[in-house]
Design a protein around this nucleic acid. Structure first.
Length: 214
DNA sequence: AGCACGATTAACT
DNA sequence: GTTAATCGTGCTC
């Protein structure tokens, strides 16, 4: 029996154990999962996750955990399955899912999704740009899904949460590419070149979603 | 208190 | 390919 996307079933909601694994594994496995945003007004947005990056611990000099526990990065030290939403460049919000054991600062940055539900609301926020560019960047998807600091530190595993991630499309290894993380201009090696970015083509996601009849 | 810079984006040459 | 926008954060003095 197929998962019904409109049910938002608790059985498809990713459980805490999903996030309580090595961050690279979680980053890979989040590809094809469905990011769901429930707005205050009752609207629902969702999209297939198509790009992620892993940030792992205090040794990783690209990770916000590198300075130890601070007010901003506090959610990274919390239980796996927590949201970490932070503000950067004076204007952009970025969304992460916290991974691994509580007390270990690690998370997966959600860099892109392929819109699935709530196209009208997404267009309202991103319609001034070409459709291709509505949700193909970490700050773009936050703008499209109306995600900001009010969504920081939430439990993504709680049924009914305003932010959730559900099991979704099956994404085989052969369509996954990986490479260095983006935007780490001032980060020293070896961290700068760690191939901790995971990516699936939008076209491939669309093809898979049609094949699965979702 | 001051400062350099950022897990980015959009516009421009 | 290059660059302005725009301000919170964490570091240095």
């Amino acid at each position: 029996m197929k998962d019904n996307p409109d049910r938002l079933s608790p059985s498809t909601l990713l459980a805490r154990d999903f996030y309580l694994r090595p961050t690279l594994t979680v980053a890979r496995d989040l590809l094809g999962c469905r990011l769901v945003r429930l707005e205050e007004n009752g609207g629902r947005l969702s999209g297939w996750i198509s790009e992620t990056e892993a940030y792992i611990g205090t040794e990783d000099l690209a990770c916000h955990g590198r300075h130890g526990r601070t007010e901003r990065n506090e959610p990274m030290w919390g239980q796996p399955g927590t949201s970490y939403v932070y503000f950067t460049y004076g204007m952009h919000w970025l969304l992460n899912a916290v991974t691994e054991e509580e007390g270990f600062p690690a998370a997966v940055l959600l860099r892109a999704v392929v819109p699935f539900q709530g196209l009208e609301a997404i267009e309202r926020r991103r319609g001034q740009q070409p459709r291709r560019s509505w949700t193909d960047g970490p700050a773009k998807l936050c703008q499209a899904f109306n995600i900001d600091g009010s969504q920081d530190g939430l439990d993504l595993c709680q049924p009914g949460a305003s932010l959730q991630i559900h099991r979704g499309l099956r994404v085989p290894d052969k369509v996954v590419t990986h490479g260095p993380r983006v935007g780490l201009n001032n980060v020293p090696e070896p961290w700068r070149s760690k191939p901790w970015r995971f990516l699936v083509d939008e076209e491939t996601i669309i093809r898979i979603s049609k094949g699965e009849g979702s």
